[in-house]
Amino acid sequence: MTAISTSEISRLQTCLRRLLGSPGLTVNAPPRAGLSVELAVNGEVVGTIHRDEDEGEVSYAVHMTVLEEDLPPAR
């Protein structure tokens, strides 16, 4: 995995807001080197984003965690 630049963070945020239809989505730079870039919705961190570069091609993987306690009650 390769670090995500400030420019990439801004571009990712724009892309993900458009794709997911969520203006409250933010992509947050890590507070210090070596930590993951965070994906948040309305200020609540819901996952991380990782950058991968293979044979000159760059891709980004979003890992999102949903806690069972955040799900609506079962019917």
Results as ranks from 00 to 15, higher is better:
21 G>E: 01
46 V>F: 14
44 E>F: 15
66 V>F: 09
71 L>K: 07
50 H>W: 06
75 R>A: 14
15 C>D: 13
59 S>G: 04
27 V>C: 00
7 S>R: 10
62 V>M: 05
64 M>W: 09
21 G>Q: 01
48 T>W: 02
60 Y>C: 01
10 S>Y: 13
38 E>D: 06
58 V>E: 05
64 M>S: 14
58 V>D: 03
31 P>F: 07
68 E>I: 11
4 I>S: 03
24 G>A: 12
34 G>T: 04
56 G>P: 10
51 R>P: 02
53 E>M: 03
63 H>E: 12
10 S>G: 14
50 H>C: 10
27 V>M: 03
57 E>H: 09
35 L>T: 13
11 R>K: 13
29 A>W: 03
36 S>V: 07
7 S>E: 15
28 N>M: 10
74 A>Y: 14
59 S>F: 06
11 R>S: 15
4 I>G: 00
22 S>I: 07
71 L>Y: 13
49 I>L: 11
27 V>P: 04
1 M>C: 10
14 T>R: 09
53 E>Y: 06
19 L>K: 14
60 Y>W: 06
47 G>P: 06
66 V>Y: 08
39 L>P: 01
54 D>K: 14
46 V>L: 10
73 P>I: 05
9 I>V: 05
31 P>R: 08
8 E>A: 04
32 R>N: 13
42 N>Q: 13
